[in-house]
């Protein structure tokens, strides 16, 4: 029973990271109808920025803020420099460009920072919390991770719903032509979406790096699972991203915990099974709109 609790909580803690990546993918998908394969690479790069800042200032929070700022800049610059010229071209072109961007960022990180594991600090203690004498398997930092992702999701949801910028973003995502006709500068809104996605990715990077260590490829498998989470939840749904991330995190944790050594080998197979089962019943993810396909 204690184990079950520990598996669940550690699953939630990793699931929150997948959720953050999934959320950033959803933001970009809603704005540009594009899968951003560079999302993990961007998160990796901004975490290196954070490490440099932490190293020079000695302040974790300065590094944290720098990473988020770098994420915003990187997202916006990527959209303006290489994505925008490719929009309106065959759809896969932009996808390949994001793959190119991923490879470029990983190469640059290798050139600038070398290929070694880097240690990234946690904001709070990594010592486990206890309920009475029972260790829960999560630390104060894990609680912070969950809180930070949830708070950001909430802020985004509120922003989308109640601010005029959010309304414009939703309008542009729903129907660009109509949005444009009603005077919304769709291009700006899209750039903003990328910037926010960059911020979310950066958040995921600084939150997960204490648990994975940082190296140029450190976000690769996190990205794959974040992408899976987004697909499970439905790429149009921010709520779906969070639910998908948690579902995946917890399920993989159980698989590794209960299936023994083959379970750890087969974590990706477990993820695949979950994905297939979900898509069998909901081809557009759990939280897809209740639209009926016209075939």
């Amino acid at each position: 029973m204690v184990e079950f609790l520990q598996f669940t909580l550690s699953g939630i803690s990793f699931g929150m990271i997948y959720a953050a990546i999934a959320l950033s993918l959803v933001l970009i998908w809603r704005g540009t109808r594009l899968l951003n394969f560079a999302q993990g690479g961007m998160a990796m790069f901004t975490t290196y920025v954070a490490i440099e800042v932490v190293h020079h200032t000695g302040s974790y929070w300065a590094g944290f803020a720098a990473a988020l700022a770098a994420g915003v800049v990187l997202g916006a610059v990527a959209e303006l420099a290489v994505i925008r010229p490719a929009l309106g071209k065959p759809e896969l072109n932009a996808v390949i460009i994001t793959i190119g961007l991923l490879v470029l960022l990983e190469g640059l990180a290798g050139i600038l920072y070398g290929g070694q594991f880097r240690s990234f600090p946690a904001a709070f203690s990594v010592i486990g919390l206890r309920a009475g004498s029972t260790p829960l398997g999560v630390s104060r930092f894990d609680v912070f991770v969950a809180g930070a992702v949830l708070a950001t999701t909430l802020l985004l949801a509120i922003g989308f719903r109640y601010t005029s910028v959010g309304l414009r973003m939703r309008a542009a995502a729903f129907n660009a032509t109509v949005a444009r006709l009603s005077g919304i500068r769709v291009a700006r809104v899209i750039t903003l979406g990328w910037a926010l996605a960059g911020l979310l990715g950066a958040l995921a990077g600084v939150l997960v790096s204490p648990s994975t260590f940082l190296y140029p490829n450190s976000m690769d498998s996190i990205f794959v699972l974040g992408f899976t989470a987004a697909v499970i939840g439905g790429l149009d749904s921010p709520v779906g991203a969070v639910v998908g991330g948690l579902l995946l995190g917890v399920a993989l944790s159980y698989a590794a915990g209960y299936l023994g050594s083959q379970g750890s080998d087969l974590t990706t197979v477990v993820a695949l099974v979950i994905l297939v089962v979900v898509l069998m019943f909901r081809p557009d993810g759990i939280f897809s709109g209740a639209r009926v396909r016209r075939v």
């Binding site: 290489v82 390949i96 460009i97 793959i99 190119g100 961007l101 991923l102 490879v103 470029l104 960022l105 990983e106 190469g107 640059l108 990180a109 290798g110 050139i111 290929g115 140029p216």
Partner: peptide, 12 residues
């Protein structure tokens, strides 16, 4: 790492 970065640039 230069070939890695160069490959990314070529794709873009």
């Amino acid at each position: 790492n230069i070939p890695v970065a160069a490959y990314g640039v070529v794709l873009i």
